[in-house]
Design a protein around this nucleic acid. Structure first.
Lengths: 254, 254
DNA sequence: AGTTGTTTCAAACATGCGTTTGAAACACAG
DNA sequence: CTGTGTTTCAAACGCATGTTTGAAACAACT
């Protein structure tokens, strides 16, 4: 991380610092200290602070999409399987990002407090994603479902995914540490959201039905590994087959 | 608004400015100009900028809870009715706040970027609310449902409510203005989320079943008023009976 | 009117910010 | 080694910020 060339080091350090403190509160001196370079470097290589910010944001979007890509579905893939995949990838991008995801925090910040770059971000990144989700939901909903209902269901899906990132500090104070470690891993959350959504649409069993079909299921906590000796896990059965491993690199660059 | 005494004017102006720009970017001079008072006033009355911020945040929490209170349920009130109420109040607090809710933006900002005051906010405000929701959900879910599942469902509910506030700028770019005006009013969103949740739990009809029971329902857009001449509205029937009217005051104070 | 305590105000202060600068250090071809 | 273009660096420059100050304006009571 310290051996790369100066512009790269700046981009990486700036990502962390901007995400931590926000655009205004992050100082050029902070960033340069973190990167281990001189203060003048940011102006030398990027022109000014705001240009560095735009560069960081652009890079964050690219890296996100490349590192956690949507699978390329074969034509016959069913809609609910694609929904599972979609939610899984969303959640990975949200919470599985390295270093607890300055990447995501940065984009959230931009959404909450648009700095003018937000529009482009939405048009280039969020909108295509949302279109894909809407396409999936249209297949799952009855034909002729009004557009606004499809949209609302879409936002319900994204809203659930987003929450586990937005409210991470809150969640940490509401749910005991052991429970979080055992039941709030990305894959488990993805399963939960998928189940909720499919059930709401009528395309899958409701939580009540799930419970009735396996009333005594002792769900498998995250660190229990593959010791699936007893009854099939009801609430936490792995639904994501093609989930990439959760990388633990320290930054967006290798 | 301009006639009140100086500390009050400062609190109101500071609320707007802090919510708009964040703690760092908001300048004392901005706030004082907005309030129409001298720059020295904030130090005279509050000590320093950070004390003013804490005062604003405290006040925002109080006013929120007072202005949009949860109904006091009579003992016989069913769980799903209480869920409807809960979601309705949440959404009102989220999106119905006056002046497009600097109130909510302020708390979101604090959650996303904790300034040290976040912990108290969670313990005093979020946790009691979450406990109520969990209590309701426990009645709706089968007996013996594991705690973490109840929690996850709770976060799904809150996540959906939150999204329409967090992602407001994004939503504005993804959904055409007319559709937003007609179908994305607080009450309609509350109905949608309640329906989704009850359906997922198995305590209400799924969207598919709703469609089957009234396939040609032409939902009533927001501004169509009580002209409920034709078939009953399937997706947008008003579910919230005791919803307070949406106040349009300019600030938290009368 | 005079006194006392409170509130307002314009101006100044100290600090930290983003940015600039000019020289030193470096890389490397001729 | 010399010359040339690039990169680094410590120091400084403006400027905007949070805060302080001391006097003026005001209010309330004797």
């Amino acid at each position: 991380m310290a051996g790369a060339d100066v512009p790269t080091r700046l981009l990486q350090a700036a990502g962390r610092v901007f995400a931590d403190k926000g655009y205004q509160a992050a100082t050029v001196r902070d960033i340069c200290a973190e990167a281990g370079v001189n203060v003048a470097s940011v102006n030398y290589y990027f022109g000014d602070k705001s240009a560095l910010y735009v560069a960081v944001l652009t890079r964050a979007r690219q890296v996100r999409a490349e590192r956690y890509p949507l699978p390329r579905w074969s034509p016959g893939t069913s809609a609910d399987e694609r929904l599972r995949d979609f939610i899984g990838v969303m959640l990975q991008r949200m919470v599985a990002a390295p270093e607890s995801g300055w990447n995501t925090r940065l984009m959230l910040r931009e959404v909450l407090e648009p700095t003018g770059f937000c529009d482009r971000l939405v048009q280039q990144y969020f909108r295509p994603l949302f279109e894909i989700l809407v396409g999936i939901l249209r297949e799952l909903l009855p034909e002729g479902t009004p557009g606004h209902v499809v949209h609302q269901v879409g936002f319900s899906v994204i809203g659930q995914c987003l929450y586990y990132r937005v409210a991470q500090p809150v969640l940490a104070l509401l749910v005991p540490t052991e429970e979080r470690a055992a039941w709030f891993q990305p894959q488990q959350l993805a399963d939960h959201i998928t189940r909720m959504t499919l059930a709401a649409l009528g395309a899958g069993p409701t939580l009540k039905e799930l419970d009735a079909s396996a009333p005594d299921a002792g769900c498998v906590p995250a660190d229990a590994g593959p010791a699936r000796d007893g009854a099939a896990c009801v609430f936490d059965a792995p639904l994501l087959q093609r989930a990439e491993p959760l990388l633990s690199v320290d930054d967006v660059d290798h």
